[in-house]
Simulated assay, not measured.
Amino acid sequence: VTEMAEESAVRVCVRVRPLIASCGNGSVYNNLSPLLTDRVFTADETTSQLYNDIAKPLVVSTVEGYNGTIFAYGQTSSGKTFTMMGSERTPGVIPLAVEDVFQTIKNKEFLLRVSYMEIYNETVTDLLVDSWKRKPLEVREQINPVCSPGGQAQ
């Protein structure tokens, strides 16, 4: 890993979903450059292992006051939702993070802000809103609203 990557606050990992039997022998692991990723999780490794290695340190630092983002990216059916949400038997990154946060702040007064968004086909959606009320979020290119000469926000 390069010196620049060691100093970065960004960590990159790749999780490889189980291969379809007719699609190869697992050689995909050998083609992932160690210069591009901090860690490759094979299909045999659990979401809990991924969470403990990659996400948990970020969750701990957010409770200490640092901003943190966990960003799942990949093509359709690559396992993003399973990794992030999991199932009843196998909790994903989000349920594991929520459990850790609430265990950490138990018996303390704490302000916690969380966003859970999906970006799909250039549309940003807030996934914490009930699905029947969900609508695309407006993307703004300016920090402050534009005000009319009378001082009213437009």
Rank of each mutant, 00 (worst) to 15 (best):
L19P: 05
Y66E: 06
S78I: 06
T90W: 10
K106L: 03
V59E: 05
T46W: 05
L50M: 13
S33K: 06
N31E: 14
L19W: 02
G74L: 01
A97M: 12
V101E: 01
P95L: 06
I94C: 11
M85R: 10
S27N: 14
Y29L: 15
V63N: 02
L19S: 12
D53E: 15
V63Q: 06
S77N: 12
Q49M: 13
D38S: 02
I70L: 12
G92Y: 02
Y29T: 15
N30K: 15
E88C: 13
F41R: 07
S22Q: 11
P18W: 00
S87L: 04
G65S: 09
T76M: 00
S115A: 12
K56T: 01
Y51T: 09
M84T: 06
F82L: 11
D53A: 15
P34D: 04
T47Y: 01
R89M: 11
V59Q: 05
G92A: 01
T90A: 13
S61L: 07
I70V: 15
P18C: 00
T62Y: 03
L112V: 13
R39G: 00
L35I: 11
K108A: 00
P91H: 06
V93A: 11
T104C: 10
F41N: 07
P91K: 04
S77I: 05
G65Y: 05
A97R: 06
G24F: 06
S22M: 03
T37M: 09
T46R: 10
G74M: 07
K106Y: 03
R17K: 12
V98W: 02
T46P: 07
L32W: 07
T46F: 03
T46H: 07
N107A: 12
G26P: 11
F41G: 05
Y29R: 14
G74Q: 09
T90K: 14
G68S: 10
M85I: 04
L96G: 11
N31V: 14
I94W: 09
G26S: 10
L50P: 10
P91E: 00
L32E: 06
D53H: 15
V63M: 07
P57Y: 03
V114N: 01
V93P: 11
L58Y: 02
G86N: 03
P57W: 00
V40K: 06
L32V: 15
V40Q: 07
Q49T: 15
L96V: 10
A55L: 07
F41I: 08
M117P: 09
E99P: 08
Q49A: 14
T69I: 13
T69E: 09
A97E: 02
E45T: 08
E64S: 15
Q75T: 12
T81W: 07
T90S: 14
S33M: 04
I54C: 11
M84H: 08
Y116N: 06
S61Q: 13
E109G: 02
G79W: 04
